[in-house]
Nucleic acid binder design. Sequence first.
DNA 1: GATTACCGAGACTCCCAGTCTCGTCAAATG
DNA 2: CATTTGACGAGACTGGGAGTCTCGGTAATC
Lengths: 208, 208
Amino acid sequence: MNQRRSHTGRRRNEAARRAILDAAVALLGAADGTPVTIDTVAAAAGVGKQTIYRWWPSKGAVLLDALAERAAAEIVPPDTGDLAADLAAFVRATFETARRPGTLAALRGTMAEALRDAHAGELMRAFAERRRAALRAVLDAARARGEIRADADLELAADQVFGVLWYRCLVGHAELDAASADRLAAAVAAQLRPVSAGGGPGTGTVAP
Amino acid sequence: MNQRRSHTGRRRNEAARRAILDAAVALLGAADGTPVTIDTVAAAAGVGKQTIYRWWPSKGAVLLDALAERAAAEIVPPDTGDLAADLAAFVRATFETARRPGTLAALRGTMAEALRDAHAGELMRAFAERRRAALRAVLDAARARGEIRADADLELAADQVFGVLWYRCLVGHAELDAASADRLAAAVAAQLRPVSAGGGPGTGTVAP
DNA sequence: GATTACCGAGACTCCCAGTCTCGTCAAATG
DNA sequence: CATTTGACGAGACTGGGAGTCTCGGTAATC
């Protein structure tokens, strides 16, 4: 509450913060089966364990922090003025980022931690919400241009995109390739378009 | 390899097998935060730990076994002769089953184990494949009836359905309600329909 | 009755998240 | 420059859980 002295003593070591986040990402994405434990992260960062726990409440918090930093920096929301193009660009960029070496393993490891620890789960929820908000910005811009039908469920559309991403990432049965991204984006764009605008899969006369 | 005596000695206790699987599901779905460990499962089943490890190679194998048994029994693939109706029925049934008390927690716990243990991950991949096969059966039947466009990506369609399911289950930001199931089924059905059949969101004249 | 294999119980090892303590080092105060 | 404050690296320590091992007991086969 009262702070007679603003902030005496040694300051936080920014280099250590960076080293910890970088080491966490590096270990998560390591091809060999190096376990991602607090000890290995601390050792890889050249840092004491307590330095990690001084600034993050749990291992999951570190991973989520590292992950969020990456995702926000990698994917810049496009705005070409066309729903189909914007959506395709967003989904392609998202899949492409996830496909980068080590990223899938990092996503898996972070989700594992989010499922194990309730606090990390909360952070994962917040992270996912931020990612959906980025996609929603694209959709909202399209809606403002009248490219989206009135009764469209934008939340469901966003969940379809990130659902496919996470499902394939976690189960590992299929690739997150560019072709899938394009098809997925096209399908979602078609389902959001106004009924009178046409152009998607359902184009043509009404069923008999 | 050679088996001079067919099978001497005491036989496997079927009651114990059932008790173990039931206890695993019960603990996974328990509302209180009871940890799902091998010890708690063994205790709840009234069984020694070794009896579990004698028949299953890991904790994850038990959970996957219990989960697969449930899912296969709960969801019977519909066949009304109409893609939209069948798909809606399948997705509704799937969401409904997942929404039953404790099931979401069970799915989360099992996925957590699948991410932690490579062997459990393999079993999860097989489980997911079986679930997609059930959905694919519905889609293949529709394709045989000519209700599906030639260039449709059935794998992607299936991943959209199960992607939304798992994404909402694991992140926990939205409900798996019947309305979402219907909208999702309708969207996927529309994206699979032949271009000349119409009836979906894209109905109407071609864009100017 | 001897052999074989499953059973419940529980001690044990190994690994890892998170805590605690130590001696040290840097920033602010006076 | 001396003192105070707090971050730092290192590492011992606790607690819990996965998986192994052993034991005495019990059911099925020979």
